[in-house]
Amino acid sequence: MKYIIADDEPLARARIMRLLKAWPHYECVAEVSSGDDVESAIIENPVQLLFLDINMPGLDGIKTAEMLNQKYRDLKIIFITAHSEFALEAFNVFAAGFLVKPVSQSDLFSLLERLFKPRIQYQVGAQIRWVDVDEVIVAKAEDKLTQIYFQGGEATIDLSLKKVAQPLP
């Protein structure tokens, strides 16, 4: 999952990236320090997720989110701020989440798991299907294949168990 961080504090940006290193399938594709630079970063690097500070020089986070919501309907915006009093205003511009600085790893992971449930892809004939990780009862390695048993069925995946589990938290 590709994401952008918009925060005028370099240490705050570095903290988010450091916390997300525990989830290797998250990749920071751009960092910006002003709301004025967010849209050009999104155009250059289409993403599903934006971490957005509220109080920044130039265009603030709330105005940036209002503008982005008009153009990028699938973009999930998570506000990161030291000012918890902005929470209501953030949700009024359809924020997917709100984290107070300093962001804790547990709060960040809980929010991301809620927004982007980890899933495993498998194939039945020519049809691709997905199962939520929390529905998996057992995953068993069989040579270079993985057999998963989940609520409502089972599937064989043409990957090793190590490769299936690698991108999961």
Rank of each mutant, 00 (worst) to 15 (best):
Thr64Pro: 04
Ser34Gly: 07
Pro57Tyr: 10
Val32Phe: 03
Leu49Arg: 03
Asn45Cys: 09
Glu31Pro: 04
Gly35Ser: 07
Ala65Phe: 05
Ile42Cys: 10
Lys63Met: 13
Met67Tyr: 11
Asp60Lys: 05
Pro46Trp: 12
Met56Phe: 01
Pro46Phe: 09
Met67Asn: 13
Phe51Glu: 06
Ile62Gln: 05
Val29Pro: 04
Ala30Thr: 07
Glu39Asp: 06
Glu44Arg: 14
Phe51Ser: 00
Asp60Ser: 08
Pro57Gln: 11
Gly35Phe: 04
Met56Glu: 02
Ile62Trp: 06
Gly35Trp: 05
Pro57Asn: 14
Leu49Gln: 10
Thr64Lys: 02
Val38Met: 11
Leu50Asn: 00
Gly61Phe: 00
Gln48His: 13
Glu31Asp: 13
Glu66His: 10
Val32Asn: 03
Asp36Val: 10
Gly58Glu: 08
Met67Thr: 13
Ser34Val: 03
Glu44Phe: 05
Asp37Lys: 13
Gly61Trp: 01
Pro46Cys: 11
Ile43Cys: 08
Val32His: 04
Asn55Pro: 00
Asp37Gln: 14
Asn45Phe: 10
Asp60Met: 01
Ser40His: 13
Leu49Met: 14
Glu66Ile: 11
Thr64Leu: 01
Glu39Trp: 10
Val29Gln: 01
Phe51Gly: 03
Phe51Leu: 10
Ser34Phe: 04
Val29His: 01
Ile43Glu: 14
Asp53Tyr: 00
Thr64Gln: 03
Ile42Val: 13
Gly35Ile: 07
Val29Glu: 07
Asn55Lys: 13
Ala41Asn: 07
Ile54Arg: 01
Gly35Glu: 03
Asp36Glu: 14
Leu50Met: 11
Thr64Ile: 10
Glu66Gln: 15
Asp37Thr: 03
Lys63Phe: 07
Leu50Tyr: 07
Ile54Lys: 05
Leu59Pro: 02
Asp37Cys: 05
Pro46Asp: 12
